[in-house]
Structure formats: C-alpha cells, structure tokens
Write a protein that binds this DNA or RNA. Structure first.
Length: 159
DNA sequence: GCCAACGTTGGC
DNA sequence: GCCAACGTTGGC
C-alpha cells in the first residue's frame, strides 16, 4: 500500500465536502499537471492519502482519505463548459486522468503547514520543498507515521 | 492582492 | 532545442 498527499482549495472542495459524498467517495478531477497525473496513475485502491487544504487561511493537512478506484479518464477535460476544459484532450486519447477517493477521517485539528515545517523528521517531505506546487505527491511510510504522531499529540492537547 | 516559483507554449 | 512570454499555484 502506498501513501499520498493531495491538495485542494477548501473554497472549491473541502474535506467536509468529501465526507458528504459518503463511503463510495467521489472523483478527484481537474488535475492538469503531468507529474501529478502520473502519480495518480500509480495509485491503487486501498492507498491512503492526506487531504491538504491549500490557498486558505490555515493551510495544512486536515484529514485522511482512501483511494477507492484506480485512475480513469477525467471527463471534465472534454467539457467546454468546465473550468478545467482542455481542447487537446481527446476522448479517444485522453490526456488527463482522475481517481476516486473516499473520506476516512478528519483530524480534530489541522496539522498546519507551519507545524509540518517545524517537524525535523519531515524535512524531506515534497510538500515542504521550496517552490513546490504539485497538487499530488507521494508520501513515505515514515512521513505518514510522523504526521499521524502529530495528530495523536494534538488530540491529547485538546483534552 | 502581491509576487516568487514553476510549468507550458510557441516563435525562431 | 532554446528561451522569452505567459499563465497558474499558493503562501503570505
């Protein structure tokens, strides 16, 4: 099983929106970057992913979701009315892909970008690299563990 | 709203 | 294949 991190702007699609989709989840559409697309193609059902809120008041990891369907063509690329329409993606030869993800949990507190930066065991985490704008990145098992540890301790402190 | 960092596009 | 121009991302 692999681990991932996926970004979304909460004003557009938040973890609460994902929770409302229920156990079958929903498609993660709109990725228009080749590197991010390639990562999605590597995903397998059962993989776990951090849900990251970007471009908002408190950027950071807000919870966990699970991949429930492997990559398949992103139909929003074919729709001229969709904001992510790409005339170069032909239904016969789709350029963009998406996976289905389902809600697993929302953390009691956001693990903020600031907090992530302060954790030395996350120094190599892709999301923390300067200038990184990739919306889908792999996460190592040790990074996953380190973040979950931060979640556990932030929960203790909230008692 | 600003702007640095980065990816993509297209002329040559 | 180079690279300037442009568009987008995302923290601040």
């Amino acid at each position: 099983m692999s681990y991932w991190l996926m970004k979304s702007e909460p004003d557009v699609f938040s973890i609460d929106d994902l929770r409302r989709k229920g156990p079958r989840g929903t498609h993660w559409d709109g990725v228009r970057n080749y590197q991010a697309r390639n990562f999605m193609r590597e995903m397998k059902p059962g993989d776990q992913a951090f849900f990251y809120h970007s471009n908002c008041k408190e950027p950071g990891i807000v919870g966990v979701m699970e991949v429930v369907r492997e990559a398949y063509p992103d139909h929003t690329a074919f729709d001229p009315k969709d904001p992510h329409f790409d005339p170069k993606s032909d239904p016969a030869r789709p350029r963009w892909y998406m996976v289905d993800v389902a809600y697993v949990e929302k953390f009691p507190r956001t693990i903020t970008l600031d907090a992530l930066r302060l954790n030395h065991s996350l120094a190599e985490m892709l999301i923390l690299r300067r200038g990184n704008r990739l919306s889908v990145t792999p996460v190592t098992a040790s990074e996953w563990k380190a973040v979950m540890k931060m979640v556990a301790s932030s929960t203790d402190h909230s008692r």
